[in-house]
């Protein structure tokens, strides 16, 4: 091996080196210029797509099975708890089941197209409505509505915003990677929020807990 090495060394290295060096020098100037140009171009493309394209690509939009008018129901039924109630064991029933709706909607009672769809497609077929829940937390979360609503006397708006005043259902946006509703992370792609209901991540829970109880709380308070 050392013999071979010596041969290489005594061989043509010098002349080769000269050649390469010349060539590189010639390239050098224009190379840097092109590099800068490419840099700027790539930067711009990536910067813009990261801001504009990415948020749109990240979420898929899904429509609710039919439109639901919260404002109308609140007017007819009263407060949120007339439909979203607590069970006797303290658990929260969440989105009403068909059986509950049928109490009023056994037959079409209004003249909206949505109600007609509801009665025809779900009530008559005895099929639960596959609502897409904007505030659905992942499986690892245990959220006690009774602790917040009864215990801490919080109102629904603090976390859910003014959904009770809405007349139409916005499209449900689902994160393609995580499967979460966009409302959890918040509309703002950086996760900035203006109102307490703009985001529903753990940090938001912790922030409020820290403020109200002086501690973020132990893990098991909200995890299962």
């Amino acid at each position: 091996m050392s013999e071979l090495e010596e041969k290489t060394e005594n061989g043509s290295t010098d002349s080769l080196e000269m050649g390469v060096s010349e060539e590189q020098k010639a390239e050098g100037d224009s190379g840097i210029g092109a590099g800068v140009l490419f840099f700027i171009a790539a930067f711009a493309v990536c910067f813009l797509s990261g801001w504009l394209l990415f948020p749109n690509l990240l979420y898929s939009k899904k429509e609710q099975p039919f439109n639901f008018n919260h404002a109308l129901h609140v007017e007819e039924m009263g407060g949120c708890d007339s439909c979203h109630y607590f069970r006797e064991d303290g658990s929260f029933a969440g989105v009403p089941k068909l059986a509950q709706c049928v109490d009023c909607h056994a037959e079409v009672m209004g003249d909206t197209e949505d109600e007609a769809v509801f009665v025809a497609e779900y009530v008559e077929k005895e099929k639960e409505v596959p609502w897409l829940i904007y505030s659905e937390q992942p499986d690892c979360v245990f959220f006690s509505h009774s602790a917040h609503v009864v215990g801490a006397q919080m109102d629904c708006v603090s976390c859910h915003g003014h959904i009770g005043e809405s007349t139409t259902m916005k499209p449900y946006e689902e994160n393609r990677i995580t499967g979460y509703s966009r409302d959890i992370w918040g509309k703002n792609i950086w996760g900035f929020k203006k109102n307490s209901w703009d985001r529903m991540k753990m940090d938001d829970c912790a922030e409020c807990h820290e403020k109200e109880t002086g501690s973020k709380g132990a893990c098991f308070q909200c995890h299962k």
Binding site: F86, S144, A147
Partner: peptide
């Protein structure tokens, strides 16, 4: 079985 404590607390909260 911490979830059982969570459930029991839920009920306690509701019953104040």
């Amino acid at each position: 079985c911490f979830h059982r404590y969570q459930a029991a607390k839920d009920k306690a909260y509701l019953e104040e």
